[in-house]
Design a binder for these strands. Sequence first.
DNA 1: TATTGTTATACTCTATAACTATA
DNA 2: TATAGTTATAGAGTATAACAATA
Lengths: 154, 154
Amino acid sequence: MAGDHERGRGAIDAILGLHLRLAHGAVSRHFVRHFAHLALTQKQVSVLWLTGDRPGIAQTDLARCLRMDRATTMGIVHTLEARGLIRRGRDAGDRRRMALALTPTGEALLGEAKAAIAEHERWLCTRFTDAEVATLFALLRRIHEPESDDDASD
Amino acid sequence: MAGDHERGRGAIDAILGLHLRLAHGAVSRHFVRHFAHLALTQKQVSVLWLTGDRPGIAQTDLARCLRMDRATTMGIVHTLEARGLIRRGRDAGDRRRMALALTPTGEALLGEAKAAIAEHERWLCTRFTDAEVATLFALLRRIHEPESDDDASD
DNA sequence: TATTGTTATACTCTATAACTATA
DNA sequence: TATAGTTATAGAGTATAACAATA
């Protein structure tokens, strides 16, 4: 702010968004390394997980839960279906919707993925106390949860 | 598996990495919307900012600061150079290195970008108290800063 | 040998637009 | 009209591999 010349390290270090981006990148890279054997991305695991929790879920629901575009969701679901992990059928009640469910193969892979996620989370959380983890949960939630109006300031 | 538990919301909500990803996505989307008029991405702003702070900086330095691959850095620098925002010349001391600097156009655009970043940060931080912002800084830093060994547990 | 830059390649994510089918 | 899905397209980010020039 009032600083005039920050040789070496500028005020860029004071940008919260940057640290959020770097933290996300670090966690993302760790994820990729530790999920290479399962050949699953973060998004794909999330979709498998949600589908396992809520059989019959539609793509629109996935998109809303994971803040994804419908087209993006479509791509991920299509990939998982092509790998035989997810099955699709028309929803009986509303024939516009696709009812998604895991195949047995998908169930098995989700089990492995959950175990890998647990390890991944352990790696992430070991650097924090339980109280710090709870704090981080609450603060991050306030960034992405639409409690106050998302764009009121615009 | 019928009737047990977590109808609607499963334990996936308890994954810290997911909340970090969603928070990053929310901030990222806000950034894109509010930087459309400048036609700059987060990475591009970061590179401009660092180059402005440290004229003569090399691509390797940028890559290390922003945790990017050399090839990724190359792509970003190339884009900025093509737009006339950055100038490149060989480093006199070490002729392998490219010494980067902003052009006058780049300086001007960086000024606008910094103002837009300030607004963006305001949007992000208004939901927090000053103490919460400081906490978030500290916690995020411990995720991406290589203080403890990054991969000791692997 | 190691480092720096460069090019080529590939995949994921993201977003927009236009289209079909159903409500 | 509105919603759900689909397809096509495009750009950004990420990463790897291979290569040339320099240290």
